[in-house]
Design a protein around this nucleic acid. Structure first.
Lengths: 197, 197
DNA sequence: CCACTTTGATACTATCTAGTATCAAAACGG
DNA sequence: CCGTTTTGATACTAGATAGTATCAAAGTGG
């Protein structure tokens, strides 16, 4: 028994404030470097909330990751590429994906996930599923059916994503021009191998 | 003054034992989860050594990273691909690289680096330089001069490395067959775009 | 308006662990 | 060998912080 039945409106507000404050702090400094007192100071209320509503610091962190994962869920899902050519479609997919991935908040999220994977086994696997795998699946679907599409989608994804994201995680986000050039080059490369337009 | 002039043979032995023990522990559990007492218990001697010879836990960690970085320095450097064809050469490069990268000890190393990057800014940048950048440069050199070689080398590298390494970090190392198939597909793809054999 | 439940503030406990101080034992060198 | 330096064992200090206990205040609902 957590000793709790229902939340008052004030309670719900505090809950959201806690998640929001915790998200900002965890993103900025990582799980270990943030103290519960600090979160409470930022959100208002008191430690009691954290322990009554989330069970503790780790519970709150898990909740934060859930919320952020939803926030970052591939923006590719709502993309309609009806009758675009192969190369042009890939270029759009690539730009849309990278614009999102390189958002400072997302870069911080990815850093946080990687840095916390020691303490939270399974976190990385979960992120891989809801993030990269999702994007790859959408690219693959655009390229059409067949195993070859899957492989090419994975290649395309890793070609355009890996390097810019790594550099951004180190604080050296590449200029957007350069990124577009990479995307276009990769798109042309892949399109040339699937010329069934 | 560290209050220390020279090391006796016993001292040197302890120093190495400390680095070795610390490396194993840090690789297994990450920086934060390892205590100095634990390292000392594994290496013999006493805490005094850690503080006199390395200045503290962080100093010892830095030393461990140095040693491990050297241990993992791209094995591609000593590879002679004199008169191999483009595709064949890329296949060899790819296999050599991945064989090394997927070693459990290296996967643990990469996890450790990523997980420690919050506490040790610059660590990731350093790793990127001595690891991936090095490999990419070697691939690029094999492909010949020109900016296009650089881009293709980066593409090839990220196509074959990103996914297997990520999966390995999550404990799901892909079967070697599959990896070879990916390498060969990527090599064929790249070779087709640079057909100046 | 009045029981009853949820929320808040605060002080406290318990634990963990990096780093230090101290003195004893071993190694070294002339 | 004997004085000096290096190494070792151990106990201790200091600081940080997750989690709890307690009671006061605010909401809530009949």
């Amino acid at each position: 028994m957590t000793g709790q039945r229902s939340l008052t409106s004030r309670g719900r507000a505090r809950q959201q404030a806690l998640v929001a404050a915790a998200a900002d702090l965890f993103l900025a400094k990582g799980f270990a470097a943030v103290t519960v007192d600090e979160i409470v100071a930022a959100a208002g209320g008191s430690k009691t909330n954290v322990y009554r509503q989330f069970g503790g610091k780790e519970g709150l962190f898990i909740e934060v990751v859930e919320v952020l994962s939803a926030e970052f869920l591939s923006p590719l899902v709502q993309l309609d590429l009806g009758r675009t050519g192969r190369a042009a479609g890939l270029e759009i997919l690539g730009r849309t994906l990278l614009r999102q991935l390189l958002e400072p908040r997302h870069i911080a999220f990815q850093r946080m996930i990687l840095a916390s994977s020691d303490l939270f086994p399974g976190l990385m696997a979960r992120w891989l599923e809801t993030g990269p795998r999702q994007s790859q699946a959408i690219i693959s679907r655009f390229l059409g059916p067949g195993a070859e599409s899957g492989r090419l989608a994975l290649f395309f994804h890793d070609m355009i994503v890996t390097d810019p994201v790594l550099r951004a995680m180190m604080g050296e986000t590449p200029p957007w021009d350069e990124i577009e050039a990479q995307i276009d080059a990769a798109a042309a490369m892949v399109a040339r191998l699937l010329p069934q337009d």
